[in-house]
């Protein structure tokens, strides 16, 4: 059930997990659209020649996916801040899962803090962070 108001949110509540499209094709298309048309986002072999493990998904696309997950859970949510730490690259063509969980509720200001984690198929945390969102009271 989608969240519409703050009172529906519970501490420790899991947001529905989100499977982002981390295909090379989508990552490369996004990179070109935003002017980051470098091989590290568009070509696995060329990325390896740069010393990387393969092509990566642009970080701002990953952040967009985080926000999409929040809006899937709570469509009226106003995103105040998304604060991420990239521990490792989100690799193109690897399957990833984004999870979120409510870790703080500020009833006075009608805001919620959400822990965000991007993990790969091996369960490794690639990206973690927090989001602060405002919800209607």
């Amino acid at each position: 059930m989608a969240i519409s108001v703050l009172s529906e949110v519970e501490f420790g509540e899991d947001l529905p997990a989100f499977k982002p499209d981390t295909s090379l094709e989508t990552g490369a298309k996004f990179a070109k659209l935003v002017g980051w048309d470098g091989p590290r986002f568009t070509d696995h072999e060329a990325a390896k020649e740069e010393g990387l493990a393969g092509a990566m998904i642009p970080g701002i696309l990953s952040q967009g996916y985080l926000i999409a997950m929040i809006h899937n859970w709570a469509p009226p949510a106003e995103i105040i801040k998304v604060d991420t730490v990239f521990r490792a690259a989100v690799m193109a063509d690897d399957s990833h899962t984004i999870t979120g969980v409510v870790t703080d509720i500020d009833e006075e200001n009608a805001t919620v803090e959400i822990d965000l984690t991007v993990t790969n198929e091996k369960g490794e945390t690639r990206v973690f962070g927090t989001a602060n969102v405002r919800l209607p009271k």
Binding site: T103, T117, T125, F128
Partner: peptide, 10 residues
């Protein structure tokens, strides 16, 4: 052992 947690849920 330690979690090395930087966010609450870890």
């Amino acid at each position: 052992g330690g979690s090395d947690s930087h966010i609450v849920s870890h």
